[in-house]
Amino acid sequence: MPIATGHEREELEVELQGKKILEDVNTPVGPFGTKEAPAVVKSYYDKRIVGCPGGEGEDEHDIVWFWLEKGKPHECSVCSQYFVVSRSI
């Protein structure tokens, strides 16, 4: 562990475990969200900005950005991927 303190140290500690700090929040990944099994996006707040890149391969589209709010699931206007926000951090 290199000499470091504060948030810099936390970042390095997580890196030593082979992960990246705030990875779930900054770059969420998971299976394509549907109405039955929505894509759950983590946040520190009740709402946040999310970008939908579409599905895999052929189903990919230009990123569409939108506000995702608690209690207001969002359906992507291009690929109809379904999102909900979770404040479970």
């Binding site: 504060g6 948030h7 936390e10 970042e11 500690e13 997580v14 700090i21 705030l22 929040v25 520190y44 951090i89």
Partner: peptide, 9 residues
Amino acid sequence: MIESQRHSY
């Protein structure tokens, strides 16, 4: 949660 900040900036 180990983060003391909600972002790295």
